[in-house]
Computed example of a mutant assay.
Amino acid sequence: MSRHPTETARGVLEIEAAALTRLANELPACFDSVVEMLLTISGRIIVSGMGKSGHVAAKMAATFASTGSPAQTVHPGEASHGDLGMITPNDAVILISNSGETKELADMIAHCARFSVPLVAMTRKAASTLGQAADHVLLMPDAPEACAIGMAPTTSTTMAMALGDALAVAMMKHRGFDRANFAAFHPGGTLGAQLLRVAAVMHKGDELPVVGPDTPMSEVLLTMSQKGFGVAALIEDGRLAGIITDGDLRRNMDGLMARSAGQVATRDPMTTTPDTLLLEALGQMNTHKRTVLLVTDGPQLVGLIHIHDALRAGVA
């Protein structure tokens, strides 16, 4: 072995990083036109390629779909055996081929021409069969592959994937696609947990430990015990007026049972809102060493979250 694996790895990354820098500096002139076209179609973005380009196409379509641009992949081989029917004149097609001469794409190219389906080529050679047939050519720099023999798709697929990300993010920004939209498409896993709102997990209604200012502390303690959150919310004239915690009980231990909730409660308690990201609410609790946050809508108490609710939801 002539080179240490670490040196080889560093060399690969440097070659691909240089290619991405060059791609950024030589962004295809038609990039804006492609984004505009993809934003105006009423159908889907069809992405395809053969071999490694096919894997890039699958990732690209998934990224488009998850950021507000409906998309799917069509395998070139399957396209020639009926799946061309998935491609309609309302769609746009992006075909990925480093050489632009991938023979398996021929039927898809012909289909686009026959039915006037907008065709975008993502290739290194504008004069190739694919490049000449396309309505738009997203030309990638003629950068060397990073493999030892200069043939395995490495740099070329990295550039194609990055260019796909650039398209997706540009369309995402143009659509005003925000975190709420993103959450709608990512309800599961870590991403879904991070994008949950407080309203999704908060306790409400009869679950809330609510007391009035004149409630005797004996009843307050019973409410705190029954509801199981270790706190009680003080409601006065229909508005949240304070909170009673274990700390308040300790500070008022002398003569506690002779007092009322209004005399013991801490006024102006820390709160959050139903629309707050659960991740942000957890950060608030950690920062201020709280295990419970009251949830308000204006002056009204509408819910309560415990730190365990956030942890159970996968936010950590």
Rank of each mutant, 00 (worst) to 15 (best):
A170K: 08
M1K: 05
G85M: 11
R179M: 14
R179V: 09
L23N: 05
I235S: 01
L13R: 04
H306A: 14
R114G: 07
E219K: 14
V220L: 08
M140S: 09
R22F: 05
G49F: 06
E26P: 01
A92W: 09
N90C: 11
M257I: 06
P76V: 01
L208A: 02
T123P: 08
G283K: 04
L119P: 09
I235E: 03
L279D: 09
E36I: 01
R290N: 07
V117N: 06
H136Y: 15
A62V: 00
L256I: 06
V74A: 00
L27V: 03
R267H: 10
G150H: 02
K204R: 14
F64H: 00
T271G: 05
K173G: 04
G100V: 13
A127Q: 15
H306L: 12
P144F: 09
T123G: 12
T129M: 12
G314C: 09
A146S: 07
A180T: 10
Q226C: 03
V169A: 05
H136Q: 15
A146G: 06
S33L: 15
P153T: 07
G255A: 12
A162I: 01
S156P: 06
G230K: 01
A133R: 04
L20T: 05
G189Q: 11
A134M: 14
M151I: 13
T157Q: 05
M159E: 13
V74I: 02
V231R: 14
G314T: 05
P118S: 15
I45F: 07
T276I: 08
K173D: 15
H308W: 11
D165I: 06
M60G: 02
F115R: 14
G255T: 08
Q263G: 07
G242E: 10
L39W: 11
L84C: 11
M60Y: 14
P70Q: 01
L196S: 12
E101S: 09
A133H: 06
A127R: 14
T154L: 08
A61V: 00
D83F: 01
T276Q: 13
N98Q: 13
A58C: 10
L138D: 00
R312K: 12
I109G: 01
P299L: 00
R114P: 04
N252R: 05
T155I: 09
I15M: 07
M270T: 12
H174K: 15
G100T: 12
Q263P: 00
A152M: 06
D246R: 11
A121V: 10
K227G: 00
M253A: 13
I15R: 06
F177P: 03
P70G: 02
D83G: 02
M253W: 05
E236L: 00
A258V: 04
G54K: 09
M202N: 00
G262D: 06
E36F: 01
A79F: 03
S116W: 11
N181V: 04
S99Q: 09
R124I: 07
C30Y: 03
A310R: 03
M122R: 07
V117D: 14
A170R: 12
T190G: 08
P118R: 15
G298M: 09
T155L: 10
M285C: 10
R239E: 08
M122H: 10
A261I: 02
Q284H: 08
E101W: 04
R124C: 13
I109A: 00
